[in-house]
Simulated assay, not measured.
Amino acid sequence: MSRPSNATGGRFSHWLVRMLRRLLLLVLAFVAGAVAMHVGMHGGDAQHMQMLEAQVAALQAERLQAQADRAADQSRAAIDSGTLRSLQEKTAELQEALGQTQDQLAFYEQLIPPGPAGSVAIRAFEIAAEGEFLSYRVLLTRNARPDAAEFKGRLRFVAHGMQDGKPVKMVLLPPGAPDSAAPAAHADPLALDFRQFQRSTGLLQAVPGQSIDTVQLEILEGDTVRAAQEAPVAQNGTQP
């Protein structure tokens, strides 16, 4: 909205400068004639000459002020032009980012599995041994509209292996998590809260002396298992 105002102000300043120039020429011609006449008629009137010189100096000062105003208008116009270019570049960047986000959303929407509305599927599950820990990567999708209510649940990892020569099965937890109960929902690294897809990564605490062969991932909603998938444990960072 500032550009039209600046343009109007610039045109007015140009018109004002032209008018002042014409006025100055007329005044100077008049003053010169008056001075010549006055000198001829009153050759010794120095005081009146000084008054006329002061008037000429005032007109010159007004001319300089008009030129300064014109330069200021041009400077403001240049600043506004630079601001407009900056906004146009920022808009182009945002438009490009929006396009990339829409492409990603379209890609993930293609991953949404067919099935009943609200159903959850495990699209990818990998788990690998890393010293005394197990690292996991999970990608979940859900058959739901973008405006559907969020799915709220939790990941559960059940290890199958051997300990003291006997088969064992136990629930794996993140490092530092209590053994008896799950952490509070707001601090639970295994909590789920999503509409259409969610990617989760993290670490699980391995059990000393237990050899884990496979881990079963279960998606819980309350106490109900909504989806499950088993994966072998990769060793030394190799993929299963």
Rank of each mutant, 00 (worst) to 15 (best):
A106K: 10
G115P: 03
F151A: 05
E150V: 12
R85L: 09
G118W: 03
I127V: 15
S81W: 08
A128C: 08
K166N: 11
G176D: 11
P116K: 12
P167H: 08
S135V: 05
A106I: 01
F133G: 00
G115A: 09
K169D: 06
N143D: 02
P114C: 06
L98S: 14
D73I: 02
R76T: 08
T91V: 03
E96T: 12
E96I: 00
A97I: 07
P146K: 08
F157R: 03
R85V: 05
D73W: 09
R137H: 08
L84Y: 11
P146W: 03
T141P: 01
A77C: 07
L172N: 04
R142D: 02
R76L: 10
G131W: 05
G99S: 12
R156H: 02
A129V: 02
D164C: 01
A128K: 11
A97Q: 15
E150Q: 13
F125T: 01
F125Y: 14
K152C: 08
A148P: 03
Q110T: 13
R76A: 07
T101W: 04
L173Y: 11
G82T: 08
R145W: 02
L139M: 10
Q88N: 09
G176T: 11
M162S: 11
T101P: 01
L94P: 04
A144S: 15
L105M: 11
F151Q: 09
L84I: 04
E150C: 06
L155H: 04
A97D: 12
V171F: 01
Q95H: 12
G82H: 14
P113C: 06
L134E: 00
G165Y: 06
A148K: 10
L140G: 01
I127D: 00
P116E: 13
T91P: 00
A77K: 12
A78G: 09
E126V: 07
S75I: 00
F133W: 04
L173E: 03
M162V: 14
H160C: 04
L84F: 06
Q110L: 13
D147H: 06
A129N: 02
A121Y: 04
H160R: 14
E109G: 08
F125A: 01
Y136N: 00
R85T: 11
A106E: 06
L111N: 06
F107S: 06
F107T: 05
G176F: 07
E93T: 11
R76K: 05
L111G: 10
I127F: 01
A78Q: 15
A78V: 07
A148M: 03
S81H: 13
E150Y: 10
